[in-house]
Amino acid sequence: MNARLIFTLIKQKNILRDANTTADDVIANNHSTKLFILLPCQVVSVICSLFVGINIIKRPAKFIKPIRNHFIIPLLITSFVQVTTELSMVENYLHIGVVLPSTNSYCLFFNWYTFSLNGINLFVMCWTSIERHIIIFSQSVFQIRWKRIAFHYVPLSIAILYTPTWYVAVIFIYNCVNDWNYYELLCTAPCFYENRILGIVDWLTNTIIPTVLIAVANIFLLIRVIYRSTGIRHNAERTKRNKKMTIQLLAISSLFLVFRLPIAVTGLMQQLFDVTFIIDIQFNIFSYLIYFIQLLLPFVCLISLPELKKTIGKTIRRWIRRNAISDVRTLHVASIMPAMNQ
């Protein structure tokens, strides 16, 4: 994506909007529609996050101890934080129509917070897609302590810390003057995008490359698992476990690909062919689609954790059984009451 072109087009759109009352009405209607969609999804997502989180915390040996599930913890935490805080900031903007408080420091924080949270989940998912090859096909690596630290905990920590550090550098430390528009989401783009090199590096490094790596790593993983399952017949249990881990990863990574590929592909088109007709679609639709990754993530995690599904199933069956016994007792008491009254 041509960062300087985007920055210029945003400013041009703002000037036209300020001079056109009809455009303001259209924008207000769009804001109401987005708020109407996002708000109920937020409530349901928070409930599901709490439900999944409480069940994971209550049974750490099942859900937290296995190394294959470690990536789910930062994903769920980041998702919960973003849905409860950053998405609320976005909904406040959609409701009022202006970023409040309208200050330079808040706009800087808003940009850094949004980019950092999106980046954490993207890079955690990227590394997990690569690491799953090691877990399935070279599991003995993680049985050695220093290798477990070097090839699991260190990359996972880097995936979590990289984007917040990068955006501190380009948003807070990089020397440029921000020209904020408080009537745009995130107060428009931060000024480092005016530097063409920085803009392209950010777009490639923090959007395109990790998204492509997720897709490529998952495709190759699926091919390897299918090939291995057809070649090994003597270890059915291991083959079954590998398929479960692959399905778990594919379910979660597909969520990232479905909602991130549109903005990545259109950005690539703009970079290669310098097209501008999809700029409004990017800012008005694709930029909001990313929030559905965080909104739907708890549900996908719930579905992709077989142990959690079994636990929930047992809880539901126990609850139904308890209610059924209670109903039988009530009916029994009701049936003998007339006899006692005689």
Rank of each mutant, 00 (worst) to 15 (best):
K147G: 01
P338I: 07
A23I: 14
V275D: 08
L100P: 09
L87K: 06
L257C: 09
Q282W: 00
R148S: 12
L289G: 04
D18E: 08
I67P: 02
A339P: 02
R317N: 05
T114E: 11
D24Q: 02
W166E: 05
V216K: 07
T103W: 11
F7W: 15
L50M: 08
L255Y: 12
L289N: 03
V216I: 15
T22Y: 11
I134K: 06
F7Q: 02
K13V: 10
I226S: 02
L76M: 14
S140D: 12
V43A: 04
R4V: 15
L272T: 14
A169M: 07
A215T: 15
Q282P: 00
I120F: 13
W146V: 12
F283T: 10
P60V: 02
K11N: 07
W112E: 09
L222N: 04
L296H: 07
T163G: 03
P155H: 00
I77M: 08
H234V: 14
T276F: 01
S102C: 10
I226R: 04
R318A: 04
R132I: 05
I214Y: 10
F110I: 12
L35G: 02
G267P: 03
Y113D: 10
A3H: 01
N195T: 11
T22F: 08
P190H: 10
Y182M: 01
I278S: 02
H70R: 15
V81F: 07
I214M: 12
L250K: 12
R228W: 13
T22V: 11
D25F: 06
N30T: 10
L50C: 05
D179L: 01
P210T: 07
D25E: 13
S79D: 11
H70N: 15
L213R: 09
K13D: 12
N111L: 00
Y153T: 09
N14L: 02
G119S: 08
I160Q: 05
P298L: 00
M340A: 14
I208T: 14
L185A: 06
L156H: 02
A264S: 15
I96D: 13
T33P: 02
E194C: 03
L222H: 05
F110T: 05
E91W: 03
T315M: 08
Y227W: 03
R318I: 00
I73H: 06
F115Y: 11
